[in-house]
């Protein structure tokens, strides 16, 4: 048996973790260095020694549209997740309890398998005719097309773990099926709902493709703004780095709070008896 008690094994484990951390954290460190690099060093990623500056941060936070873009991204991601959970919870419950053809639940993933490039044109045309191009509602609609299936799929597993007898018990105890669903079953899958919500939030928050094509001015989201620093005059690396770090922060915070439930959900112990 491998054990961490021996000295050599502990040293080996330390180096393994160190290498993994280096690989994972290096991009963050590099992006951070870029964000405090003076413009005169711009476009020189191999320069490690320079006088740090706060110019990029000041510019992005105080003089650009990025704060508005951040707000747009939050509105889009929160709305997408809220709607996705509102639709996904009952849908996942229904798939979980459906006793017919078990392959039916996989159909929810069909939308996921389509390349976004196929969906974007119809989306664009529909939104154009609805005069919803460059609106947050349009982006939310597009994001729902891939967040709803993922959230639903994610939740089916959590509902599967809740014994049917739990809702049967509630129905015998004097409640309707719908009451049983929201008074007993939903609380039992709360960790799953949290994890699915974070998952969906990150998907929406990080999306560039739909947002880039469906928004242009007022409704630009943060990833679009990040891409916007790639101009015809070249890449404005310092400002882009600042925007990237800002984009990463909420994801990190959310992951930190939800990680316990994520692991628990993936480990399959959502409902403990």
């Amino acid at each position: 048996m491998f054990s961490f008690s021996s000295r050599s094994a502990r040293i080996a484990a330390f180096f393994a973790i160190a290498v993994a951390l280096l690989i994972v954290l290096f991009p963050f460190v590099w992006v951070f260095l870029e964000s405090i690099k003076p413009a005169s060093f711009g476009g020189k990623p191999d320069v490690w020694l320079f006088p740090p500056t706060s110019d990029n941060w000041n510019n992005v936070l105080l003089q650009s549209d990025v704060p508005a873009n951040i707000l747009n991204s939050f509105v889009v991601a929160f709305s997408t997740v809220a709607i996705a959970l509102l639709v996904g919870c009952p849908a996942a419950y229904a798939f979980s309890r459906f006793r017919g053809y078990q392959g039916a639940r996989y159909s929810i993933l069909a939308a996921e398998m389509m390349p976004p490039a196929i969906l974007i044109l119809p989306f664009f045309l529909v939104l154009y005719h609805l005069q919803m191009i460059d609106s947050l509602a349009g982006v939310i609609a597009a994001h729902l097309s891939f967040v709803v299936p993922v959230v639903t799929w994610f939740l089916i597993g959590f509902f599967d773990e809740v014994p049917r007898d739990l809702e049967n018990q509630a129905m015998v105890d004097g409640y309707t099926r719908f009451q049983a669903f929201y008074k007993v079953i939903l609380p039992a899958v709360r960790p799953g709902i949290g994890a699915a919500g974070v998952f969906g939030f990150v998907l929406s928050w990080n999306d560039l493709f739909y947002a880039l094509l469906l928004t242009g001015g007022e409704s630009r989201t943060l990833p679009v703004a990040i891409a916007g620093y790639w101009t015809f005059r070249g890449v404005d690396m310092g400002k882009m780095a600042v925007a990237i770090l800002i984009a990463v922060i909420p994801v990190l915070i959310l992951s930190f709070f939800i990680q316990k439930h994520l692991v628990r959900g993936i480990g399959g112990g959502a409902v403990k008896y």
Partner: peptide
Amino acid sequence: RERDIAMVFQNYALYP
């Protein structure tokens, strides 16, 4: 819920 019965299930079905 309209039958005025109580049931004890094999797995107890306690609300977790």
